[in-house]
């Protein structure tokens, strides 16, 4: 049985220009000890999807569907029950650590909070644990660093501190939203390396959200490609990189620097008023007449690989 299964998830919020369907009928599963990479361009709804799992979106966002974790639907839980899951069972590593760390509290305190909260430790004991966590994410002089504030950390160290905070209570599932965004390439490599080791050590399942395919290639077992609020392709990592099924996936791969850096023509459609047929159709080289009018379903390409494209009908 899968650890997390998301079924027909929809998240939308109202703006002055209309209703934004940031997540539109998304389904996927994550098994125990599995890492799923959710990739897509910026603005495709990845982050909204990540936040809707633990219900961290603002109140004006409406979320529908089923998010089953260990058999319980997170969308139906009371706020109190959910609080016991957040940070203990499912932890989230947020993007942009500078704004996600509280500027007026020491890093050590912020890492020790989950210990006090979920393991009932006293302040001192939690603090020792926090220093241990800082050591585990390879921060030098963890004792002293724990007493410092986020602004005294470098970008890479802040990201490590965020990871330490997420891993604190040995969660079964970690949601990492753009864990390498805004870091130098060399620092990125270090962070990826660290995450690889930590995933192996902790045996946790993981959902990694990124626009960076090379990061996904390093860390993930499976890939889900998101575009304009929906999933266009779902495949194992080997299949995806060897033989991507959806035309968008092909374009996405070809846009990588290592594969020719070929830009995708056109711009991604608006989330308010998406094209009626296939959402990628206006930018697709293989588009046919039906692509303009009929919205395709996710279709089986082969065992373990699915694509939302009429080619596979």
């Amino acid at each position: 049985m899968s650890l997390l299964s998301v079924e027909h998830l929809e998240s939308q919020f109202v703006t002055e220009d209309g209703i934004v369907k940031a997540v539109d009928d998304v389904s996927f599963e994550i098994a125990n000890n599995e890492t799923l990479g959710l990739v897509g361009e910026s603005g495709c709804g990845k982050t909204v999807l990540a936040l809707s799992i633990l219900r961290l979106l603002s109140e004006n966002t409406k979320t529908r569907g089923i998010i089953r974790y260990r058999g319980r639907d997170l969308l139906q839980l009371s706020e109190d029950d959910l609080m016991a899951i957040r940070g203990r069972e499912i932890a989230q590593i947020f993007q942009n650590p500078l704004s996600s760390l509280n500027p007026v509290l020491t890093v050590g305190f912020q890492i020790s909070e989950p210990f006090m909260l979920h393991q009932g430790l006293k302040r001192k004991a939690a603090r020792i644990k926090a220093v241990e966590m800082l050591e585990r994410v390879r921060i030098p002089l963890p004792e002293e660093r724990a007493r410092e504030y986020p602004h005294e950390f470098s970008g890479g160290m802040r990201q490590r501190a965020m990871i330490a905070m997420g891993l604190a209570c040995k969660p079964s599932l970690i949601i990492a939203d753009e864990p390498t965004r805004g870091l130098d390439v060399t620092i990125q490599a270090q962070v990826v390396e660290l995450m690889k080791e930590l995933i192996k050590e902790s045996c946790a399942s993981m959902l990694i959200i990124t626009h960076d395919l090379s990061l996904a290639a390093e860390l993930c077992d499976k890939i889900a490609v998101m575009y304009s609020g929906e999933i266009l392709e779902y495949a194992g990592i080997q299949d995806f990189f060897r033989k991507p099924a959806h035309p968008y996936s092909k374009c996405f791969l070809e846009s990588l620097p290592a594969r020719g850096m070929k830009p995708i023509r056109g711009i991604s459609p608006s989330l308010i008023d998406p094209p009626p047929g296939c959402r990628f159709c206006p930018r697709c080289d293989h588009a046919r007449e039906e692509c303009k009018h009929v919205h395709p379903d996710l279709m089986k390409v082969k065992e373990g690989q699915y694509a939302r494209c009429h080619i596979y009908a």
């Binding site: 633990l54 609080m83 989230q92 947020f94 942009n96 996600s100 509280n102 909260l117 905070m165």
Partner: peptide, 20 residues
């Protein structure tokens, strides 16, 4: 963002309010 991160840790509304 750090308020959202604090919620993600599982803190209650009250303690988010007071400490964060």
């Amino acid at each position: 963002d750090y308020i959202r991160a604090a919620r993600g840790k599982g803190l209650s509304r009250k303690s988010i309010f007071i400490t964060h």
